[in-house]
Simulated assay, not measured.
Amino acid sequence: MAHAPGKPIDVHTWSTPNGWKIPIMLEECGLPYRVVPVNIGRGDQMAPNFLALSPNNKIPAIVDPDGPGHEPITIFESAAILQYLGRKTGCLYPTDERARVMVDEWLSWQVAGFGPMLGQAHHFRIYAEEKIPYAIERFTTETQRLYRVLDRRLAGRDYVAGDYSIADIAILTWAKYHGKQGVDLAGLPHVKAWLDRVLARPAVQRGFAAI
């Protein structure tokens, strides 16, 4: 659902799975925005001006100059931002309660499990200076299990919660990097088909390119 142009939303973010979610959502909904880079590699997220926006020193955060009551609002945490933008625009977030619950379930699944476990797999497999076999096995095994959950869910479905939604956006930015997580999509045909489908969306491609 395209949205009428207005004042741009400032998106404080960086090129990470969580950081890409919001530009993708904004591209899908046709909202104007401006990326404000927060270089987490040099510690920009610890700066006092960013802490004022995001109390947990984590990206992303947004400032919407046209928030509720036409007053500015600041929001941190990617899931909260996605839900807010969905409510604001009516885009990719159903109003029917049963449909919304389904989207919220899979959004929560990503936030509580899929993202954190994949992030730990990334860290211990690739970035940790010391290779710790126990940690690598623990997080890789759980990551592979979560992908199997996703594959079962996508059997017979084009998207995780009915129509394409914020839940798909939240999951796809992590699933794009399955190789780094020790996951081979050859044994996950439904995930592979879904990932090909969502990555082919022009708004998704623009969102990834925005940072």
Rank of each mutant, 00 (worst) to 15 (best):
I169V: 11
E142P: 08
Y134G: 12
H122G: 14
L172Y: 01
L118C: 13
A128D: 04
G156C: 06
L185A: 09
I136N: 02
R157S: 10
A193C: 10
D151I: 05
H190K: 05
G187P: 07
Y127E: 15
G182N: 12
V149D: 01
Q120L: 08
A155C: 11
H178N: 08
V183P: 03
R152Y: 02
E129G: 11
D151H: 01
R125S: 02
Y127S: 15
D184E: 02
F114Y: 11
Y159I: 11
D151G: 01
S165L: 03
G115Y: 04
E137M: 07
Q120W: 02
H122W: 13
R197S: 03
R138I: 04
T143Q: 07
P189H: 01
P189G: 03
F139S: 03
D184V: 07
D151A: 01
Q144F: 00
E137R: 13
L150T: 13
K131A: 11
R152H: 05
K180Y: 13
V183H: 02
E130I: 14
R145K: 08
V149T: 07
V160L: 03
L118H: 15
R157H: 10
L118Y: 13
A175T: 14
V183L: 02
A135N: 02
G162S: 05
F139I: 12
Y127R: 15
I171V: 12
V191Q: 00
P133V: 13
K192E: 09
V191S: 00
T173R: 04
T140I: 08
K180F: 14
V183S: 02
L150K: 10
L188E: 10
G187T: 14
D151K: 00
A121L: 08
H190I: 04
A121T: 12
A155H: 01
D151E: 03
A161I: 08
F114N: 15
H190D: 02
E142G: 06
K176I: 15
G119N: 06
R152W: 05
Q144K: 08
G179N: 09
M117P: 11
R145P: 04
E130H: 11
D184R: 06
I126H: 13
D151P: 03
K180P: 13
V149P: 00
A121D: 06
V191N: 00
E129W: 04
S165R: 05
L185C: 11
L146E: 08
Q120F: 03
I126Y: 11
R148E: 02
E130W: 12
P189Y: 00
T143H: 06
F114A: 14
V183D: 02
